[in-house]
């Protein structure tokens, strides 16, 4: 019961500053992680440090490449994310799209934000997400199913929810994380396979190991194997709390919390998974694309391993906002 009230105490300027900071921290963490993995390869595979200090080749390459990756993810993450979901820009010719574009313009007027680019994802399951580096370069994507299922006020609530993510700079942090998660999952896959088939060679065999070396080796393997899991948990942690804040800001913008609550319960009941949205992008969405079973559980473990807060809780908070308003 206390969680959202703590969050409400943080206004959106603080949230913006927090997100800018976190993006930097995570980008540095990304570079450090790859530096560490590279150092491990230098040490255990190549035995670089046996002949005194030299510039370790693999770690240097790893650091340079990961910096390039980090900058690339920061700048191009949103187009990467949009491409992975097969989103196409909304064409105002269709009356349905026109309604969506109108709603987006309304909310950008309400929030004082520039109008984002609007994309449609050809998927029948209702869902939506926003992405981008900052409000000026932001994009908002909704599935075809969302347009079919929701009425005008409900759609307005969901758009306002996404625009709140844009205003809070949640999109910057989450887009960068989404791009990182994709890359790390890919790379660790390759590396685990390499470890299994390549085995330990040359460098490790020599006497340089010692107990410190063994410890480092174990640490290195742990980092490598758990990297995808760590990044996944990271994505979950940053994602859930800000959903409450975005719900609250959306209600503040539209002055209509009930419409968003109705939209959320409609989205929850449409339990089919959103096929075109991959798990790596899940934390960007308004509801978890994996479907209902992931979100209806409560309790510690369920909260730790889902990207979104329990739907019933979100709906409850929105409804309590509506009662406060009318009372």
């Amino acid at each position: 019961m206390t969680e959202p009230f703590i969050l409400q105490a943080r206004n959106f300027y603080e949230q913006q500053a927090h997100n800018r900071r976190m993006t930097l921290v995570i980008m540095s963490g990304f570079v450090l992680l790859f530096g560490a993995i590279g150092l491990g390869i230098d040490y255990f595979y190549l035995g670089v440090f046996e002949e005194g200090f030299v510039l370790p080749p693999v770690s240097t390459i790893a650091v340079v490449m990961s910096i390039a990756f980090a900058v690339g993810c920061f700048n191009g993450g949103s187009s990467l994310v949009l491409k992975s979901t097969e989103a196409v820009q909304a064409d105002p010719i269709h009356p349905e799209n026109q309604r969506l574009l109108n709603i987006v313009r309304e909310i950008s007027l309400a929030s004082g934000l520039p109008v984002p680019r609007v994309y449609i994802i050809p998927d029948d399951d209702p869902n939506a997400f926003a992405t981008g580096k900052n409000p000026d370069t932001s994009s908002l994507a909704v599935t075809r199913g969302l347009l079919n299922v929701l009425d005008r006020d409900e759609l307005q609530g969901v758009v306002a929810h996404e625009m709140s993510h844009i205003r809070n700079y949640d999109i910057r942090l989450m887009t960068t994380v989404a791009a990182f998660v994709g890359i790390i999952v890919l790379l660790s896959d390759v590396m685990v396979r390499g470890l299994r088939f390549g085995g330990l060679s040359k460098g490790r065999r020599s006497k340089s190991g010692g107990s410190l070396g063994a410890l480092l080796f174990i640490l290195w393997i742990i980092v490598m194997i758990f990297a995808p899991l760590i990044t996944r948990i990271m994505a979950m942690m940053i994602s859930r709390k800000r959903e409450y804040l975005a719900d609250a800001s959306a209600a503040e913008l539209t002055r209509n919390p009930i419409a968003l609550a109705n939209a959320l319960s409609k989205l929850e009941n449409a339990s089919a998974p959103t096929k075109s949205i991959k798990q790596g992008v899940a934390h960007l969405c308004v509801v978890d694309p994996a479907g209902k079973s992931f979100n209806e559980k409560e309790g510690f473990w369920a909260e730790l391993f889902s990207t979104h807060p329990p739907m019933q809780k979100r709906i409850m908070y929105l409804k309590s906002m509506a009662y406060q308003k009318s009372g």
């Binding site: 309604r99 109108n102 309304e106 909310i107 007027l109 309400a110």
Partner: peptide, 17 residues
């Protein structure tokens, strides 16, 4: 109808802002 609805909404949101 859609045009007028969005205009009405934009008026009230513009006033809010």
């Amino acid at each position: 109808m859609e045009e007028l609805t969005t205009t009405e909404n934009q008026i009230s949101f513009a006033r809010q802002f």
